[in-house]
């Protein structure tokens, strides 16, 4: 019985921790972009205030919308984003370690996108239809280089003869930078560049934010959401930032000091900040939006070319 309560507390801890961590990092992201554009920027807890305001507002359901899909999909998108964090080794081992949870995590990342698309399509408004189709094109695009990037460390672990090669724990414990020679180091660096583009694409941030393109299609996929539904979507957005970057931390930046939990967690926060700063704030402020007719060309062409070059270099 005691064991159950412990588990329940652990789950609650992870839910609240991931949501608040995500919102804090979103706040930091907003401040940094503001600073880079020479303006003051909102207070650090601004995302929390947004969420509380949204929870108070009315959550309107459009006329011809299908009620149950429209309401359920934001909640499913949030729950699955939190679920991913249980499979990723953040400090020591992941909570739910398995022998092939890398493929599971790659597939679980499709769920939030899928539920937002279904919710947007069910809201029966032209803008959200177009936004949802663009989100699907975006998913089609970044899934290919994401698969390549995720299977590079698996190949390294396989080449040096470990078992259970698809489990994130083995990749996290065996530091892949040690398993590779000089050419491989260059390959991994190229891979990291590709990863920053993939993270920006996954979270549909600036160069790839075609589905919520504010100027073109007024809020895009989330045009019809308001009130607590929109709050759920913002939360799922925040948790996805944490999830995708902690996946790539586990894969590509596993250095850590073996001491008590708090120091290891702080190092994890530092790595998280490093990745989010480069992949989100830096790329967001620097680049502008790609055209939709070029999006998959860029993904399947340049980004996956970058990833495959990295993979080939690692092969030597």
């Amino acid at each position: 019985m005691f064991n159950l309560i412990l588990k329940f507390i652990l789950i609650m801890l992870i839910i609240i921790g991931s949501i608040s961590l995500g919102l804090i990092f979103e706040g930091i992201d907003r401040i940094l972009t503001a600073k880079m554009q020479k303006r003051v920027g909102p207070p650090i807890l601004q995302p929390f205030y947004d969420i509380r305001k949204l929870m108070i507002k009315e959550s309107i359901i459009p006329k011809y919308a299908i009620k149950w899909i429209f309401e359920l999909s934001p909640i499913i998108s949030l729950t699955v984003s939190i679920l991913i964090l249980f499979y990723i080794p953040i400090v020591g081992k992941s909570i739910l370690g398995g022998s092939n949870d890398l493929i599971l995590v790659v597939y679980l990342f499709i769920f939030p996108g899928l539920s937002i698309v279904l919710g947007a399509l069910s809201s029966n408004s032209t803008y959200s239809n177009i936004g949802a189709q663009r989100l699907v094109i975006n998913m089609l695009g970044y899934e290919f280089p994401l698969a390549i990037a995720c299977f590079v460390p698996v190949w390294l672990v396989y080449k040096s003869g470990f078992s259970n090669i698809f489990s994130l724990n083995t990749i996290y414990t065996h530091n892949i930078w040690g398993l590779v020679n000089q050419i491989g180091i260059i390959g991994l660096l190229i891979e990291i560049i590709a990863i920053f583009l993939i993270i920006a694409g996954e979270l549909s941030k600036s160069p790839f934010d075609l589905d919520t393109a504010d100027s073109e299609i007024a809020g895009g996929a989330l045009a019809e959401y308001s009130g607590r539904n929109l709050a759920m979507l913002n939360l799922s957005e925040a948790v996805k930032i944490i999830a995708i970057s902690s996946l790539f931390i586990a894969l590509f930046f596993p250095w850590n000091i073996q001491s008590n939990l708090i120091i290891m967690f702080l190092i994890y926060i530092l790595k998280l900040f490093f990745i989010i700063f480069i992949s989100l704030t830096l790329i967001k402020t620097v680049t502008s939006r790609f055209k939709i007719s070029k999006l998959t060309g860029i993904y399947w062409g340049y980004v996956s070319l970058l990833a495959t070059i990295g993979f080939l270099l690692v092969l030597f």
Partner: peptide
């Protein structure tokens, strides 16, 4: 992995055109 994401796109298209909308 790419094949399964493409199948997902196909089925979403059918679901949108037939099940959703007025």
């Amino acid at each position: 992995v790419l094949g399964s994401i493409l199948t997902l796109a196909v089925l979403i298209k059918i679901f949108a055109l037939i099940f959703l909308g007025a």
